[in-house]
Simulated assay, not measured.
Amino acid sequence: MEFDLSWLLLGLPLAFGLGWLASRFDLRQLRDENRRAPKAYFKGLNYLLNEQQDQAIDAFIEAVQNDPDTTELHFALGNLFRRRGEYNRAVRVHEHLLSRGDLSRADRERAQHALALDFLKAGLLDRAEDALRRLEGSPFEAQARMALLAIYERSRDWPQATEIAQRMQAAQQGDFSTRQAHYLCEQALAQAARGETAAAQALLAQAIAIAPRAPRARIELARLQQRTGDAAAALHTLLELPQAAPAALPLAAPLLVETAQATGSAEQALALLQAHYQDMPSLDLLDAIVALETGGSTPQDARGWYVRHLEKEPSLVAATKWLAGETLAHEQFHPQIQRALEQAAKPLTRYRCAACGFEARQHFWQCPGCQTWDSYPARRVEEL
C-alpha cells in the first residue's frame, strides 16, 4: 500500500495546533492556581492587619488548602490559632509540619519551637518540657532553656532548675549565680521545715559561697541560727551583711535588734544601724534604732527620732508614729485621728515589685505576680 504524503502534511499542523492548545490550557490552569493562593494569602494578611482574626484564619486555611506544601502559611496559621487561644488547633498544625518528610532542618526546628510554645500556652508543662528538650543544639536553644527554667521554677523543681541555670551560665547566657543561690535557699527552707537543720545550714552556706553579694542566704541563715537558739552566731552572720549587701540591711533590721538584745550587743548593733541610717535613711532602720535606743519603752521616748526623720524627708508613716506619743489640745479626738492616719499610712508601708508593680505587706524574693527574682526593693512604697 502506497503512503500518501498529503496526509502527513495535513497532520503536522493539526498536531502542532493541538499541542499548542494543550500547553495554553496547562499554563492557564497553573496561572489560575497561582493567583488563587496569593489572593487568599493577601486577603488573610489584610484581615490580620485589621484585627479581624476570624476572617484571617478562614483566608489562611483556604490558602493552605490550595497550596498544602507552603510552610510559611502553616506557621502563620499556627501562630494565629495560638494567639486566639485555640491551642489544640495550633498543635495540630505544627505537628502536621513535623510529620512531613520533606521539611528542611531549619523549618523543622522552627516547627518544634512553635509546638513547644503551644504546649506552654496551653499549660501542658510535661509536654512542653519534652518539646523544649528537643531543641538542644538548635538556634532556639537559649530560648528553650529559659522556658525550661520558668517551668521548673513554677513547679518548684529546684534541682532541675539548678541544672538548667548551670548549663546556661556555662554557655555564657548570663550570670545565674544569684538565681542558683535562691534555689539553694528554697531547698534549705524546705529542709528546715522538716527539722533537718544541719542540712539546711549547709545549703545556705553553699548559697553564700556561690553568690557572696546576695543578701537572702545570710538573712535566712541568721534566722535559722536564731531559731535554733544560737543568737551569737545569728548576730555574727547579720554583722557581715552590710559589707556584702548594705541595701538589704533594712530587711534584717528587726532580726538584728532581736539577736543584739539576746546577746547583750545592743550598743554594737545600734552603732551599725545609726551609721547606715545616716547614709541611707530608712523607716525600718529608724524603727530598729528606736527599739534599741529606748529599750522597747513607751512611744513618748521615741518621738524625737521620728521628728529628726521628718527633717530629713517627709513621711506620713513617721508622722503617724510621732503623733502616737503626743498629747493633743483636743485629746478626746486623738483615737479617731490616730486611726485615720494609720489607715492612710498602711498602703505606704507595703513593698512594690519594680517589674510589675505588685504590692504586698511582706517582702518577697520572687514576685508572686510576675515571678521575677529580686524585683522587690528593700524599701517601703513611701520611700521609693
Rank of each mutant, 00 (worst) to 15 (best):
D4R: 05
S6I: 09
W7I: 14
W7C: 04
L8R: 01
L9M: 07
G11R: 10
P13V: 09
P13E: 08
L14I: 15
G17K: 03
S23C: 02
L27K: 15
Q29N: 14
Q29G: 02
L30A: 13
E33C: 01
N34A: 11
R36A: 14
R36K: 15
A40E: 12
Y41C: 03
K43I: 01
Y47V: 02
L49P: 02
E51D: 12
F60S: 13
I61G: 05
E62A: 15
V64Y: 09
N66M: 11
N66F: 14
D69Q: 07
H74W: 10
H74D: 09
R82P: 03
E86S: 08
R89W: 10
R89G: 14
A90S: 15
H94V: 12
H94R: 11
L103D: 07
L103E: 06
S104K: 04
R105M: 11
A106T: 12
A106L: 14
R108W: 07
E109W: 12
R110V: 14
Q112V: 12
A122K: 11
D126R: 13
R127T: 13
E129I: 06
D130N: 09
R133T: 07
R133W: 08
R133P: 03
R134Q: 14
L135G: 07
E136Y: 01
E136Q: 15
S138P: 02
Q143L: 15
Q143N: 15
A144N: 10
M146V: 03
L149F: 10
L149W: 08
L149D: 02
Y152D: 10
E153K: 12
E153D: 09
W158H: 06
P159V: 02
A171I: 04
G174T: 00
D175I: 04
H182D: 15
L184G: 03
A188I: 07
L189E: 14
A193E: 14
A193W: 09
E196Y: 13
A199T: 13
A205E: 12
I210V: 15
P212C: 11
P215M: 05
R223N: 12
R223A: 10
T228G: 04
A231W: 07
A232P: 01
L235F: 15
T237E: 15
L238H: 11
L238V: 13
L241K: 13
A247F: 11
A247L: 11
L249T: 03
P250R: 01
A253N: 01
L255R: 01
T263S: 11
E267H: 14
L270P: 00
L272N: 11
L272F: 09
L273Q: 02
Y277W: 08
Y277P: 02
Y277T: 00
Q278L: 10
L283D: 00
D284C: 07
I289T: 02
T298S: 10
T298L: 10
T298R: 03
P299V: 13
Q300V: 15
D301Y: 14
V307C: 01
R308T: 08
H309D: 04
H309W: 01
E311L: 11
S315D: 01
V317T: 02
A319T: 00
E326Y: 05
E326G: 03
E326D: 06
Q332W: 03
H334M: 06
P335Q: 12
Q336R: 05
A340W: 06
Q343A: 00
P347N: 03
L348F: 08
C353Q: 06
G357S: 00
E359S: 08
A360F: 13
R361N: 12
R361L: 00
W365I: 10
P368I: 10
G369T: 06
Y376W: 02
P377T: 05
A378P: 00
R379H: 04
V381F: 09
